[in-house]
Computed example of a mutant assay.
Amino acid sequence: MIRFAFTLALAAPLAGCATVPQAAALHPEAMPYSEGRDAMADVDAALARAKQRNTHLLLVMGANWCHDSRALAGWLASPRFQAMVTERYEMVFVDAGKPQEKQGRNLDVARRFGIDELPGTPNLFVIRSDGTLVNGESVTGWRNAASRSEDAIYNELLALASG
């Protein structure tokens, strides 16, 4: 009986590990967040392009270490999303570091659009070409991106593009 309980105690954590690859397969992943870029210059250039094209800026502040950031970036890189994003947005990925551990990066970009604190990653900003934030109430609510459905993310971005 003791041997059975011991085996069960060892098997439970391993069963959790076995589900990790399956969970990762539920969404694509990408790692576009680069520490070395001039984030503010990238945002300025994208806003200029958005103004020329009469579109919005889709600014994603995340990090390559974060599975939710990688999942959101993966969806945005998929063919379905690329068609919509290319038509309706200029997109920029900005490395945010680890803001929840007070090791954030490029937080001046978030503050530029009225978001003073990032509680984690990713954060998704939809910004009109004149620099006004469309989705202030939902910017920091994307930390569960890996568990959102493809359709839910797509439909939300489609609706925000009209805002």
Rank of each mutant, 00 (worst) to 15 (best):
P21F: 07
R88K: 14
M31D: 08
P119C: 05
N123G: 02
R53V: 03
L59I: 10
H56N: 15
G74P: 04
I2G: 09
S162V: 07
V60G: 08
K102N: 07
G74T: 06
E137K: 12
Y33R: 03
K98E: 14
A15R: 08
N64W: 00
K51S: 10
D130T: 05
N54Q: 14
E117N: 13
L107S: 02
G16Q: 14
L26A: 10
V139Y: 02
D95S: 01
V134G: 09
L59S: 08
Y154T: 05
A152L: 12
I153A: 06
M84F: 04
A25D: 12
G16I: 11
V139H: 04
Y154P: 03
E87K: 14
N135M: 07
M40K: 11
M1R: 07
Q103A: 12
A45R: 12
P119G: 03
A145K: 04
L26D: 09
P122V: 09
P13I: 13
G36Y: 02
H27Y: 04
V134Y: 03
A18C: 11
D44G: 00
E150C: 05
Q82V: 15
G131F: 01
G114R: 05
A39K: 04
D108C: 02
W142M: 09
G163L: 09
T121L: 07
I115P: 03
Q100H: 13
P79H: 02
A145H: 02
L26N: 08
Q52F: 00
N135T: 08
L14A: 11
V126C: 07
R112N: 04
A9N: 04
R143F: 04
A18F: 04
N155Q: 15
S78F: 01
P119V: 12
Y89E: 12
T55H: 05
D151E: 15
L76C: 13
V94H: 03
E29Q: 13
V85Q: 03
A30H: 07
K51V: 00
D68K: 03
A77N: 13
S138Q: 10
P99N: 07
R88H: 10
K102G: 01
I2Y: 02
A146C: 04
R143Q: 15
I127S: 06
R70E: 09
D95G: 01
A50M: 07
L47W: 03
S69C: 11
L47D: 05
L118P: 05
A25S: 14
M91R: 13
E137H: 04
I127D: 07
M91V: 14
T140W: 00
A73C: 09
G36Q: 08
V92H: 01
R88M: 07
F6L: 15
D44R: 07
A12L: 15
N54F: 00
H67S: 12
W65F: 01
Q100I: 02
S34Q: 13
L124R: 06
G114C: 05
A46T: 11
F81G: 12
I127R: 09
D44T: 10
F4I: 14
G141L: 12
N54R: 13
L124D: 06
V126E: 09
M31V: 09
C66Y: 05
T140C: 10
A9L: 15
H56P: 01
L72Q: 10
G163H: 04
E150F: 00
L8D: 10
L10Q: 11
E117Q: 14
L107K: 02
M91S: 10
E150S: 11
M91I: 15
A71E: 05
